[in-house]
């Protein structure tokens, strides 16, 4: 009724998605972050072509060689070398593959599981909801990192195991979001309309409700990506992640611990890489949330 809100709703045409995208494009910081993020992805995908050196080639003559701009450095080894004389710059480029791959796969698998579990719990209610909600509560009761460490200790290290260990708990987060959104959406009249038309529960969950909870869960997924990358780095740092000699930022930081005073670059540059990647993911996903989550609109 209030005329004050009219101008906002009166604007015609342009699909919701394009309007949201335009909002996102106006956020300069978020766009810059997205661009840097894209740079990381490109770096990971084309690592063999970009990396100046073989990341696993040891050269004891270059042990702890400083970065190029310091005395004793050389430009072919831009960020210096580690204790085994491996090129840090190249290892960072290859390490991006591990971080981004694990981050993406874990979040993707967890999101799919979470959407299905959340939809089932939120729409079907009853014992399905009780079961899923209790499981969520129990999993949330464990500290994430300790939970993952425990699982890794049981399963042993390795790429597949690290993904599994993280997914075991990660699905809970999208599941909770989807369940909450579903509880709200299921009461709306268009869901009731679909029931009145004779639609099945499966149709209602997948065709009517899911598209409307998707944007919220995708925003959550991008934010979670940053956390998963940190968790992977933490596990690798503790030696429970990807096994040597494969380059991983977490294990690279760990490698440099012993020489932090005489050769600071060994730990610092992979650490900075983690920081930058996590930061740009967070800023970009904040921008996405502001643009796509309807609750942040007027």
């Amino acid at each position: 009724m209030s005329a004050v809100s009219d101008p906002a709703t009166a604007s015609p045409a342009a699909s919701l998605f394009r309007r949201n995208l335009a909002t996102f494009a106006e956020n300069r910081l978020a766009v810059a972050s997205a661009a840097i993020l894209l740079g990381f992805v490109v770096m990971a995908v084309f690592a063999p072509w970009i990396a100046p050196q073989d990341p696993n080639e040891t050269d004891l003559f270059r042990r702890l060689q400083p970065p190029a701009w310091m005395p004793g450095g050389e430009w072919a080894y831009l960020l210096g070398c580690d204790a085994l004389g491996r090129d840090i710059f190249s290892r960072i480029i290859y390490g991006a593959r591990i971080s981004i791959f694990i981050g993406t796969v874990v979040v993707a698998v967890a999101t799919v599981i979470g959407i299905l579990a959340g939809l089932a719990a939120g729409y079907l209610r009853g014992w399905v909801d009780t079961l899923i909600s209790r499981l969520i509560d129990i999993l949330l009761g464990f500290p994430y990192l300790i939970f993952a460490i425990g699982l890794m200790a049981m399963m042993g290290p390795g790429l597949v195991n690290i993904i599994l260990a993280l997914v075991y708990k990660e699905w809970v987060i999208p599941a909770r979001v989807v369940r909450g959104e579903t509880l709200a959406v299921r009461e709306l009249e268009y869901v009731e309309a679909a029931r009145a038309l004779g639609a099945s529960r499966f149709h209602i969950m997948i065709r009517e409700i899911m598209p409307n909870v998707l944007s919220a869960v995708l925003v959550v997924a991008t934010i979670r990506m940053a956390d998963v990358i940190i968790l992977e780095a933490s596990l690798s740092f503790l030696g429970l992640g990807v096994q040597p000699p494969t380059a991983s930022w977490g294990s690279m930081v760990a490698d440099g611990r012993a020489f932090i005073l005489e050769a600071w670059w060994v730990s610092t540059f992979p650490g900075l890489a983690i920081l930058t990647l996590v930061l740009v993911i967070n800023v970009a996903s904040q921008g996405l949330r502001d643009a796509f989550d309807p609750r942040f609109h007027e």
Partner: peptide, 15 residues
């Protein structure tokens, strides 16, 4: 069949 009150909530915004 049924016709609903709220012309906003009764149509799925994504369809």
């Amino acid at each position: 069949q049924i016709i609903f009150q709220d012309p906003y909530a009764s149509l799925n915004p994504r369809r």
